[in-house]
Amino acid sequence: MAYSRQTRYSDPRAHAALFDPLPADPAGIGEVIRNLVVHYRASGIDFPPDRLAEIDSRWADRLLDADRRRFDTPLAEPRAPEQRIVGCCRDFALLTVSALRHQGIPARSRIGFADYLGPDWHYDHVVAEYWDGARWVATDTQIDIADLRLGPGGLRTAAQVWSGFRRGEIDLETFGVDPGADHLRGGWFARNYVIGELAHRLGDELLLWDLWGDMSEELPDDLSLIDELAELLQAADAGDRAAERKLADHYAGDPRLHPGTHVTCASPTGATFTADLRRDAI
């Protein structure tokens, strides 16, 4: 896909003009995004239910709606942490990608597991990636890392993690949401994230807690589909155009992979509900 075009999730729609004054460079954009979003868990702030619900905003323009409900100032004007948009790593990445695309910079979001957020644990994480004219550069605008390695020591993509697991090199019991979240880790979790990585790559930048298609909270007996996707994703990252095309064909043609019109949203708010992805239905 053409990564300089907005997707239905990254499109700021009525708020596009808010991005006009932003710096035309990834570092400057990242600084603004950190001023807009606060992590619902990592901040340590106890948000009331109506504010916590912002984590399910899903669309970039709905995230910006939340900011506009409290502010009528430019996005770069300081916001106190407790007044920022309540989100997670995916929202830092989505708004970064949205702002970069608005500036004409090709950008996309990457899903995987971070080796750098805490000791002895690989936290599920999303970062932005942009094309600098010569290569794709990953940037973690949540914590201000400008040139992030995609691999051990940095963000291991979901595909890398899955392939490492299948080779017997990785214990997936240390890959997940948090050491204290007993269920949100392991093989089924990493498998779902490979499907999520593919979706984000192809323009469906869904929530981390959305479930669709062949996603499951159990590890099935047949792992061949995810094995193939993981290999193709890594080949595409290495510049294999044929792998990129095959991923797009798989995603478009296989209902196990793309979300269709509805997903199950298992929100961190504690609610589980069916979300309609059709913009005209919202």
Results as ranks from 00 to 15, higher is better:
residue 258 H to R: 13
residue 281 A to F: 12
residue 19 F to V: 03
residue 36 L to C: 13
residue 59 W to D: 06
residue 177 V to S: 11
residue 161 V to Y: 04
residue 224 S to T: 15
residue 223 L to Q: 10
residue 33 I to R: 05
residue 171 D to V: 03
residue 265 C to D: 14
residue 23 P to M: 03
residue 238 A to P: 00
residue 267 S to P: 01
residue 217 E to H: 15
residue 61 D to P: 08
residue 263 V to F: 09
residue 104 G to T: 11
residue 56 D to W: 01
residue 89 C to E: 11
residue 230 A to I: 10
residue 175 F to R: 05
residue 76 A to I: 04
residue 256 R to Y: 06
residue 36 L to D: 03
residue 108 R to Q: 11
residue 215 M to G: 07
residue 37 V to K: 07
residue 170 I to W: 01
residue 99 A to L: 05
residue 31 E to S: 15
residue 58 R to M: 11
residue 194 V to S: 01
residue 58 R to W: 15
residue 250 H to R: 15
residue 36 L to V: 12
residue 193 Y to P: 02
residue 222 D to Y: 01
residue 212 W to G: 04
residue 75 L to M: 07
residue 158 A to N: 06
residue 90 R to A: 15
residue 97 V to F: 12
residue 72 D to E: 14
residue 272 T to C: 10
residue 78 P to A: 03
residue 258 H to C: 10
residue 161 V to N: 01
residue 89 C to V: 12
residue 282 I to T: 12
residue 203 G to N: 06
residue 33 I to K: 06
residue 29 I to Y: 13
residue 4 S to F: 14
residue 146 A to Y: 10
residue 211 L to N: 14
residue 205 E to F: 07
residue 158 A to Q: 09
residue 261 T to V: 13
residue 152 P to I: 00
residue 154 G to L: 03
residue 13 R to Q: 11
residue 183 H to P: 00
residue 99 A to M: 06
residue 154 G to R: 02
residue 164 G to T: 07
residue 211 L to Q: 13
residue 90 R to I: 09
residue 142 Q to R: 06
residue 126 V to F: 14
residue 156 R to N: 12
residue 263 V to I: 15
residue 133 G to L: 00
residue 244 E to I: 05
residue 40 Y to E: 10
residue 233 L to D: 09
residue 40 Y to L: 02
residue 170 I to A: 03
residue 205 E to R: 03
residue 111 I to C: 14
residue 242 A to R: 14
residue 257 L to V: 03
residue 48 P to V: 05
residue 49 P to G: 05
residue 111 I to M: 11
residue 272 T to A: 14
residue 134 A to W: 10
residue 190 A to W: 10
residue 153 G to W: 07
residue 128 A to M: 11
residue 115 D to T: 06
residue 191 R to G: 08
residue 244 E to H: 06
residue 126 V to M: 14
residue 184 L to C: 08
residue 112 G to C: 05
residue 47 F to S: 07
residue 247 L to Y: 04
residue 179 P to L: 05
residue 162 W to N: 09
residue 127 V to T: 07
residue 213 G to S: 10
residue 145 I to C: 07
residue 216 S to C: 04
residue 114 A to Y: 09
residue 171 D to Y: 00
residue 67 D to V: 07
residue 200 H to Y: 13
residue 121 W to A: 01
residue 75 L to E: 06
residue 91 D to L: 06
residue 30 G to T: 00
residue 57 S to V: 02
residue 275 A to C: 04
residue 151 G to I: 01
residue 65 D to I: 04
residue 7 T to N: 07
residue 280 D to N: 08
residue 227 D to V: 11
residue 80 A to F: 08
residue 263 V to W: 09
residue 203 G to K: 10
residue 236 A to W: 01
residue 140 D to E: 01
residue 256 R to T: 07
residue 92 F to K: 02
residue 187 G to D: 15
residue 77 E to W: 14
residue 37 V to E: 01
residue 148 L to N: 10
residue 204 D to C: 05
residue 124 D to N: 05
residue 190 A to K: 08
residue 252 A to T: 13
residue 23 P to C: 08
residue 79 R to T: 08
residue 201 R to T: 12
residue 189 F to D: 09
residue 105 I to W: 08
residue 36 L to F: 09
residue 162 W to T: 12
residue 50 D to H: 15
residue 270 G to K: 00
residue 49 P to H: 11
residue 44 G to C: 02
residue 121 W to P: 11
residue 147 D to L: 00
residue 249 D to C: 06
residue 122 H to A: 04
residue 133 G to Y: 02
residue 4 S to Y: 13
residue 171 D to E: 12
residue 1 M to L: 13
residue 111 I to V: 15
residue 180 G to Y: 09
